[in-house]
């Protein structure tokens, strides 16, 4: 007479919609959901990824503090409620797909580096990120060296010479140095269905 199953966490309600609006196929959305379930059940099994679970998945420890992990999480969290639903997770990861349009990658990376979300990247933010990177990777460079790296970067990137890098300048910089966008592409996403084959057991569609 009745459905005795426990209520399912909100999640994969309509894989077709996500498949239409991202670069993923329906099967890939379903496989990605398997990854999402794994990450979102690590601390609290509520079908949502909190910051601790995100850090745990990234670093295999929740003890590590990372400016960039925080920044990435905040950008994924488009609803700004401190947790990631599958929808947010899939849409954000879509940008990292090898076949995602380069313009999306350029925009996303600009937002990542625009720490204060002012529409440009200022010198102080670049310094903060360089210092954080060095600290996170245990590297030690003198302040003088850090300053000279930033000088050189601005010399090249800040073509309008106003002490900040706007989106247009960022775009020109990465077009000259495509490797700066390397961290915006995850080859794993190409093979997501083979990495998480268990999706076929929960699939809502016939694979034709």
């Amino acid at each position: 007479c009745c459905d005795l199953e426990l209520p399912q966490p909100k999640g994969l309600e309509d894989p077709q919609v996500l498949a239409r609006e991202t670069v993923f196929s329906v099967s890939e959305v379903e496989a990605l959901y398997e990854l999402f379930k794994k990450i979102s059940s690590a601390v609290i099994d509520d079908g949502l990824i909190n910051k601790e679970e995100f850090q745990l998945a990234l670093f295999k420890t929740n003890k590590k503090e990372s400016l960039f992990a925080d920044r990435v999480f905040d950008l994924f969290d488009t609803k700004h409620n401190g947790i990631l639903g599958f929808d947010e997770f899939a849409r954000a990861l879509s940008v990292f797909h090898p076949s995602a349009p380069p313009d999306e990658k350029i925009d996303f990376s600009f937002q990542l580096y625009d720490l204060k979300q002012q529409g440009y990247i200022e010198r102080q933010e670049v310094k903060q990120m360089v210092v954080a990177t060095l600290a996170e990777s245990g590297m030690n460079l003198s302040d003088e060296v850090v300053e000279s790296i930033i000088d050189k970067t601005f010399e090249e990137a800040d073509t309008k010479h106003d002490g900040k890098i706007d989106k247009e300048e960022w775009r020109n910089l990465v077009l000259r140095h495509p490797s700066l966008l390397k961290n915006m592409t995850l080859q794993y996403l190409k093979d997501i269905t083979t990495t998480f084959p268990s999706f076929v057991f929960h699939s809502q569609v016939d694979d034709t």
Binding site: L58, S137, I149, L180, Y188
Partner: peptide, 25 residues
């Protein structure tokens, strides 16, 4: 290697950007 002197090349190597780890079993 001109890029080795670019701050963003350095920043993009940060572990916090290595989202590939999300896929590690």
């Amino acid at each position: 290697k001109p890029e080795s002197m670019n701050a963003f090349a350095l920043i993009s190597r940060s572990q916090g950007f290595n989202l590939g780890n999300l896929f590690e079993k």
